[in-house]
Amino acid sequence: MEQKPHQPFTDLDVWKKAREFKKELESLAKTFPLDEKRRLSDQLIRSARSINANIAEGHGRFTYKDQLHFCVQARGSLSETLNHLIDAFDAKYITQDQLSFHKQKYDEIERLLNGYITYLRGKL
Rank of each mutant, 00 (worst) to 15 (best):
Q7P: 00
Y64I: 02
F9G: 05
L82Y: 05
Q7N: 01
L68C: 06
K23E: 14
E36C: 09
V14C: 06
R38I: 05
R61L: 05
M1F: 07
I117C: 04
K22D: 06
E80S: 05
K65E: 12
L68T: 06
E80K: 04
H102I: 07
G58Y: 07
K17V: 06
L78S: 03
A74S: 13
L34V: 15
R39L: 14
E26Y: 12
K17M: 12
Q96S: 11
L40E: 02
I86L: 13
N83R: 06
K30R: 15
E2K: 10
T118Y: 12
Y119A: 07
V72F: 12
T10F: 02
E26K: 14
L25G: 04
E110G: 09
Q43F: 02
T118H: 14
F21E: 08
F32G: 12
L34H: 15
I117F: 02
T10D: 04
D90I: 03
D107H: 10
E36S: 09
G76V: 06
R38F: 14
L113R: 00
F70K: 09
S77W: 03
E24P: 02
I86V: 14
K23H: 13
F32N: 11
L44S: 02
R111A: 13
F101N: 15
G115E: 14
K65V: 05
A88K: 01
F101S: 13
E2G: 10
L124A: 01
G122P: 04
Y106R: 12
A29L: 07
T31E: 15
H59S: 11
F9A: 09
K4T: 03
H6C: 00
T95F: 00
T31N: 13
Q3G: 00
Y116R: 08
E24N: 15
L112R: 08
L120F: 02
T118Q: 14
L78P: 03
Q43E: 08
D13E: 15
V72E: 13
P33R: 12
I45A: 08
P8A: 04
D11R: 10
T63W: 07
L112C: 06
I86T: 08
H6F: 10
A29H: 03
L34S: 15
N83V: 07
V72T: 05
D42V: 04
L112N: 08
K4L: 12
E20N: 12
N52S: 13
S27W: 00
S100P: 01
G122C: 04
F9V: 12
L82H: 03
K4M: 05
K17R: 15
T31S: 15
K123N: 05
Y116W: 13
S47V: 08
R19I: 03
R61H: 05
N54I: 05
P5F: 03
I55G: 08
G60S: 05
F62E: 15
F9P: 06
D42K: 12
E57Q: 13
F70W: 06
K103M: 10
G58N: 12
L120Y: 01
E57W: 06
N52W: 01
Q43C: 00
T95H: 01
R75T: 04
A88W: 01
G76N: 06
L12Y: 05
R121Y: 01
D107Q: 15
A56R: 07
T63N: 05
L120C: 09
L68W: 02
P5H: 04
A91G: 01
G115Q: 14
K37D: 07
